[in-house]
Structures are given as structure tokens and as C-alpha cells.
Amino acid sequence: MMRRLLPPLLSGSLFGAGLALGGMTDPARVRGFLDIFGDWDPTLAFVMGGAVIVMAIAWRFREHMAHPLFAEKFSLPDRSDLTGRLIGGSALFGVGWGIAGLCPGPGIAALVIEPASAAIFVVSMLAGMFLVRLVEGSA
């Protein structure tokens, strides 16, 4: 049980700590990064860069592993098709990201930093996700 639940808890905690340390739980930092025509704040590029470099190394490790450390097999996305749904959905996400300066991770992590505001965002986000499921049937 612990062997199964501890890794995701540790992963989530590290993730949340990284978001807060990197300033991503501050909407002004995120909007500052997107504001390339104004007073640009490049901090988010360092966050993304640091995370991508570490993960690029992790993907190399994965090539030499028959199975994950605490699970029987790798369960990873394998699609490569570019669809209107992917691009349209990502565009809608980007508009929402730009409006409030929050994406899913920082929104949930901010529940301990600014609970009322973060909760409004997270509940609305879940409502949006539920809406897609309602319209499309079970996903």
C-alpha cells in the first residue's frame, strides 16, 4: 500500500514545492512571462528549462528500464497525430491561462496560499472538464 501510494505523494509534493519556489503560484509571474510586448518576466522560461532538462535525462533512463521501479509496466501516451481537437483545446487552455495566470498545477498548489481564489479557479476548472465529458459521453 505505502509502496504504491508514497511515490505519487512524494512526486506531487516535489512538484508543488517546485511550483511555489519557481514563483508559478504567483499569477503575476505567469502573466509577466506571457506579457512579451510589455514588462516581460522570463522566470517561467527558467522553470520550464530546468524541468525539461531533468525530464530529458529521465526519458533516457527509461529507455534502459524494462519496467518502472514501483509498477509492473510503463503506461505512456503513444499518439503522434495532430488533430484540430489537440490544437483547439490547447488554444482554449492558453486563453484561460492568460486571463488569470493560472494553469492546473499552480491552481491546485495555491489552495494553501490563497484558498478562496484558488478554490474558485479549481472548481471552475473541474466544471469545465466535466462539461467536456457531459458533451462527449464517457471518456
Binding site: G89, G96, L102, S124, M125, G128, M129, L131
Partner: peptide
């Protein structure tokens, strides 16, 4: 923003 992020990410 939350609604757009929710719909868009799904």
C-alpha cells in the same frame, strides 16, 4: 479562466 482551462485541457 477556470472553465477555459478545464475544457481546453480535456
Amino acid at each position: 479562466a477556470g472553465l477555459l482551462v478545464g475544457v481546453g485541457t480535456r
